[in-house]
Design a protein around this nucleic acid. Sequence first.
DNA 1: AAATCGGGGTC
DNA 2: GACCCAGATTT
Length: 360
Amino acid sequence: MHEQLREFNIDGFQDNLVSWFTLHQRSLPWRESKDAYRVWVSEIMLQQTRVDTVIPYYQAFMREFPTLEELAYAEEDRILKAWEGLGYYSRVRNLQTAARQVVEEYAGQVPSSLAEISKLKGVGPYTAGAILSIAYGKPEPAVDGNVMRVLSRVLMIDADIAKVSTRKLFEAILYDLVSKKDPSAFNQGLMELGALICTPTSPGCLLCPVREYCQANQAGIQESLPVKSKKKKAKAKQMAAVIIRNQAGEVLIEKRPDKGLLARMWQFPNIETTKIETQPKELKEALAEDNVPVNIGEKVQQVEHVFSHLIWSISVYEANTVGNTNFNREGRWVKVSELEQYPFPVSHQKIIEEIKRRQV
DNA sequence: AAATCGGGGTC
DNA sequence: GACCCAGATTT
C-alpha cells in the first residue's frame, strides 16, 4: 500500500466516486460505446483540449472515418482537414501511424496489454491507462490534469504537478487507489469530478461526493492546490506573407515542412523578417529564389496569432506574377473557391477570410 | 528536465 | 495578460 494512502478509506472513496459518476456523468458522444477505436480517438482529441471543443470534431471524425481501417489508409490531407482548428496536429498524424500499426501487427484489434498499447505512436501513459480502463476494464491509472488536481487536494499533496516525477507519484498511488471492480467508472469519475466540481478556481466542495475524504478541504486550503510552476511566456516573431495571383487569377499555396510547427499543413508563402520597411523587397527576393518572379503590391492585412510558446505577427501583402513561374517547392496554384479543400492553420485561415472579403 | 507542439475559453 | 485544458514527443 502506498504510504500516501495510510489511514485513507480506499473503499469508501471508491464507492462514493463511482456512485456519483454513475448518477451524474455527462452524456457525451464517446460514452455511447466502449469500442476501443472510438475510445482511442476521443482520448487523442481530448489531449489538452476541452470537452466542448472536441464534441463537434469527434462526431464529424467518426462519420468521416467510421473504422480503424478507413482511418489507417486515408489520405493525409483528409485527416489533417478533419483536425483543422483543433491544434497539435501531430496527434492525428501519429493516430494514423498507430492505426496502421494496429491493422498490420494486431489484425485490426487495438491491443489490450499495457506493454503493447504503449508502443502505439501517440499513446503515452495517460492515454494507455484511459483506453485500457474504459475500453477493456483494466485497473490501470490514467493521470491527466484533472486527476492531479483532484488527488492533490484529496491527499493534500503539494508536489509541483508540472514535473514528470509528480505524475509518476500519482500513478503509483493510483495503482492502489483505482477501483478493481469498475476501473472505467473510477477513472472517468476522477476526471469528471475535476471537470465539474473540483475545478481549478472556486471548487464546488459543498456538492462534492468525496468531501469527507478530502484533506485539503478539511484544512481549508483546497484553493491553494495543486501547486504548479509557471511556464515562461511566448516569444514574438515578425513575419511577412503574400497572396500571389497568376494570370488565371489563381493563388499560390505551399505545404509546410514534414517536421516541426504545423507540419505538412498548407499556407501562403511567407518569410520571417526583422524590419517592416524592407518586407516587400525581402518577399520579392525570396520568391525570385524559388522561381516565382512577382511584383509586390499593397499590404492588405495584419494577422496576430498567439500560440502557447510563440506569437506570430504577420503582415500580409498582395502580389502578381511577372512572366513564367516554376515554384521549386511543394506548392499549388488554386482557385479561391478551392482553398477550403486544403488544411490550413488558423493563422492562415484568417488570410483566406480576408481574400474572400476582398472578392465580394 | 526542459522545450516543443495549437487553439480557444475564462477570469 | 495569465492560466487551463481527458498530454506526447523530441531535444
